[in-house]
Design a protein around this nucleic acid. Structure first.
Length: 502
RNA sequence: GGGCUGCUAGCUCAAUGGCAGAGCUGAGGACUUUUAAUCCUUAGGUUCGGGGUUCGAAUCCCCGGCGGCCCA
């Protein structure tokens, strides 16, 4: 402790007038023995319950029942001797509170008018009635502050700016019902996915987020440091290599829903941290996973919308029912180009095609990578209806089993919905010798400066050398599933997305 | 990474190089049945930050910050 006292912070300095006013109301509440932040307030019923219970209360009658309700004051209509306020609960349910001179008395009514602002949380005790205009109300005998709001609420009738909505999500949640709906929808979807997997006898596990090596995907990782181990650690870019270790150990159906971290660009479909479902099933393949993933998404759609037809926030309806289209990667490229392109098409020819369609080519790309880039350039935007794109080149799928009939291809599909990649699945590569060769090729890429290349994971190879059953595996972005079901941008599906510091 | 675009009162927005404004919110007043209540009065500004051009800059130019949209 120093001799010099920290100067008392005087928040009255430099504050906007409206915040000064609210602080002085807080002071007046204290001075009058009305705690602005009491530990407890009376609360007998939820607003939602009262709306349901008294839905049929006739206009201009009393119920005879006394209740205590709580809510945030979102509208006030103050009169001389009779005041109205609209209270809103956390679930969005609203109820009118009425304060009349003859019920609460002059002092309490005066306090209500002079000390309560829009945005305050209050508790109101009184009889449930229906007003002369038929509005279900609590006619107050008494009221109490539950929490004084020191900041004014944004105007309820104009849309909040995009930036404020994201930076101050708590305000967004208060004023915008759709913001709360998204939170509910997301919880419904995640719960539906878990139930879908539990029903099919999958076990949920949690695997390391802090990893000594990064692997399981092609992405640039975040790096952090362990003081205890005196070594750098990576935030995981995927749980894949650990879930496969679990399959080696005999956990034959396993999944994880958790966050991945990728140190890459942020845009309307990419967030640095994003939630992902990964699932592995022994003795299955990419065809089995294709059916299951469709079923899981359809079950999630049903949980959210009650049917396979989901309605986006702009009103468009998307039908996710039935079987979904499937195309092959090279078939899609061929029909987009009007030229026959196969896994056998050589690099020079692919480069000529790329030039023809004005795709700029990184000289480090091999033919497989270039084919994938051609596909993304030419086809993905048109894949609005759910479509499985199958059979990717070996070059870009180092963890995937070789195709059963076509050399050079792997058994991998990507699922596209709404023009973006929603999910992926493989027949997993389980041959430890080939896996080592694939890792070796990746390490050459890394040595060549590819920051997204996978690292050679000896412990993973050791696990595989004990024998991993033939398996199907899948991964799906939870945030993107929300996007597909709601039509929202990724930052709307994440409650508190990363934003630049103010 | 590139292009376009925005940042003004607590919130949403005007102000076309010439006095920085409106609605809601706030403050004061009227009103015992309102529904985004209404009516009267009224307060509120580092125009994102810095530099420049100009008699004069919210406005034009340059640099920086933070968003949005499109493209790669």
């Amino acid at each position: 402790m120093t001799e010099q006292n920290t100067p008392a912070i005087d928040p009255a300095e430099d504050l906007p007038e409206q915040m000064r006013v609210r602080r002085s109301k807080r002071d007046r509440l204290l001075a009058e023995g009305l705690p602005p932040y009491p530990v407890e307030v009376p609360r007998t019923d939820e607003i939602t319950e009262i709306r349901a219970r008294y839905a049929d209360l006739p206009t201009d009658t009393g119920s005879g029942d006394k209740v205590s309700v709580t809510g945030r004051v979102i509208f006030v209509r103050n009169g001389g001797k009779l005041c109205f306020a609209t209270l809103r609960a956390g679930d969005g349910a609203e109820l009118q509170a009425m304060f009349s001179l003859d019920k609460v008395g002059e002092k309490s009514l005066g306090d209500w008018k002079s000390l309560v602002d829009l945005g305050d949380l209050v508790a109101v005790t009184g009889e449930v009635i229906a007003s002369r205009r038929g509005e279900l109300s609590v006619l107050a005998d008494s009221w109490a502050m539950s929490a004084k709001a020191l900041r004014p609420l944004p105007v309820a009738h104009k849309p909040l700016s995009e930036e404020t909505r994201v930076r101050q999500r708590y305000v967004d949640l208060i004023v915008r019902p759709q913001a709360r709906d998204v939170v509910r929808t997301r919880a419904t979807v995640v719960r539906s996915l878990r139930e879908s997997l539990f029903r099919r006898n999958y076990l949920e596990v949690e695997t390391p987020m802090l990893q000594l090596l990064h692997g399981g995907a092609a992405a640039r990782p975040f790096v952090t440091h362990s003081n205890a181990l005196d070594t750098d650690l990576y935030l995981r870019i995927a749980p894949e290599l650990f879930l496969k270790r679990a399959v080696v150990g005999g956990i034959e159906r396993v999944f994880e829903i958790n966050r991945n971290f990728r140190n890459e660009g942020m845009d309307s479909t990419h967030s640095p941290e994003f939630a992902m479902l990964e699932a592995y099933q022994a003795y299955a393949d990419y065809n089995v996973m294709q059916t299951q993933v469709r079923e899981w998404i359809q079950e999630a759609a049903s949980a959210v919308a009650g049917s396979h037809v989901v309605t986006h926030q702009d009103g468009t309806e998307v039908d996710l029912g039935g079987e979904w289209a499937q195309i092959t990667l090279f078939g899609a490229i061929s029909s987009a180009l009007g030229e026959e392109v196969t896994i056998g098409t050589d690099l020079a020819q692919l480069q000529r095609y790329a030039e023809k369609v004005q795709l700029s080519v990184d000289p480090k790309w091999g033919p497989g990578k270039l084919a994938e880039e051609l596909f993304e350039h030419l086809v993905t935007d048109s894949l609005v209806q759910p479509t499985f794109v199958r059979d990717f080149p070996e070059e870009t799928a180092p963890l995937t089993a070789p195709h059963r009939t076509t050399p050079g291809l792997t058994e991998k599909w990507d699922l596209y919905v709404g023009g973006f990649e929603l999910a992926t699945a493989y027949s997993e590569l389980v041959d430890p010798v080939i896996q080592r060769e694939r890792f070796h090729a990746q390490s050459l890429l890394a040595a060549g400066g590819d920051a997204e290349a996978m690292q050679l994971d000896e412990d993973f190879l050791r696990a595989m050398e004990y024998g991993m059953p033939p398996s199907g595996g899948m991964g799906m972005g939870i945030d993107r599933l929300l996007m597909a079901l709601t039509g929202l941008g990724i930052r709307e599906t994440i409650l508190f997305p990363l934003v630049r510091p103010e």
